[in-house]
Design a protein around this nucleic acid. Structure first.
Lengths: 214, 214
DNA sequence: GAAGCCGTCTGACATTTGTCATGCCGAGTG
DNA sequence: CACTCGGCATGACAAATGTCAGACGGCTTC
């Protein structure tokens, strides 16, 4: 659907890749498949966020392919760190569950590409070339979701309190953790729920999670 | 750690595999890697539960490698169907999020292998051979989790009501859906929460989900 | 077959939660 | 400056929820 420049890669300079994903099966398989492409070479692999950062520092890849959810630190925070330390390294995020909010945060962190794991390896290779060339690529379906979901209507406090409520804690506990009066907490929860069109705070938490707003 | 019989495969009869996973990236990569093994051949791929079933009927594989979470029908229900229709086909479940309850349900459905996606492709190939030989293989760590989590202490009704409560619906709605009095619903939720050591039903839902009991 | 246990179900009561009216403060606007 | 608007905060009231004691039937156990 999207046009990807299939320009000939510089023969003497293959694109150097960092692969980070906690699922060994996927990471290894991906490394093998991408390695088959003449113009791509996997120079480092990592299974956690911190490991990915360390590997990036050590090997200075051209493109970092990061899973969104990893132990330690997620793809977006790794991308933020990389942005500062290695400006020449482009970041591409790959994810199983594409939530609209994540895409937004990722782009804000300077990520150049965002794709679901439902793409084929062939397609991923093309996208890696696109990103390496300095262009952006965002999966059309995820982009559409993000646009239709829009921005979070929640204020800072509302989001904070909603997050504390995420594990089903009673209001009294939330109030203590947020250093607020119980009444205020109820108010925020109530307003957040009505903004999200939810019946109660628990449904609100579910919706906010779905849209990546917490 | 676990001994896997490395017996020579029958040269003329490679193990015929069905691969089912909704993530194209992983499925394709896996197919490529497993195809490199001399004694394994991927004869069919599927992206959804129903598709996996149809493919299995058409190609009659020796081993079906199924993702636990797929659109349409999950790996366990596919396994149950296969068990009846193709008794000669052994089922191996692969998953990202290993919940204790899932493992138990899978084994009850006649699944012969259960592994997380953190294993290497090499290791997966060995496990496929183990399963094809008629043996079982369960990831030691997942097995330990399952044992420590134990069986669900919830009665049938408690689990049912808890499931209805999963999306944060008010009690009145749950009562209607379950054809019970609101008072009874509250009672079940309360008893389920206390059995799980949760403060309220929402925390109970979280815990039950974590342990794979709903 | 009587006793005891477990799962199912119900209504009454106390607690928690959601809703509302209200006040305070800082930013932007005329 | 005066005004308005939106975010932050609170307490009072009404509704939903959690807790409790108890009734009924099926099952095992002695």
């Amino acid at each position: 659907m999207t046009s990807v420049p299939s320009g000939a890669p510089a023969p003497g300079a293959p694109v150097r890749l960092l692969l980070a994903d906690d699922e060994h099966l996927i990471r290894g398989a991906l490394a093998a498949l991408l390695g088959l492409e003449d113009d791509l070479v996997v120079v480092a692999e990592a299974a956690t966020g911190p490991e990915a950062l360390a590997m990036a520092r050590a090997h200075v890849p051209d493109v970092a392919v990061l899973d969104l959810q990893m132990p330690g630190a997620d793809g977006v925070s790794v991308a933020t760190s990389l942005r500062g330390e290695l400006p020449g390294c482009q970041v591409l995020i790959v994810t199983s569950h594409g939530r609209p909010g994540h895409l937004k945060r990722a782009l804000a962190a300077g990520v150049r590409g965002f794709v679901p794991k439902t793409v084929s390896a062939q397609r991923l290779a093309e996208i890696i070339r696109t990103v390496h060339a300095g262009n952006r690529y965002v999966d059309p379906e995820l982009a559409a979701d993000a646009i239709s979901a829009g921005d979070s209507p929640l204020t800072a406090r509302e989001a904070e309190v909603l997050e504390f409520a995420a594990d089903g804690a009673p209001v009294a506990e939330i109030a203590e953790r947020a250093a607020l009066s119980p009444g205020t907490v109820r108010n925020y929860l109530s307003s957040a729920a009505s903004k999200l069109g939810a019946e109660n705070r628990h449904a609100a938490v579910r919706l906010a999670r779905q849209r990546g707003w917490v």
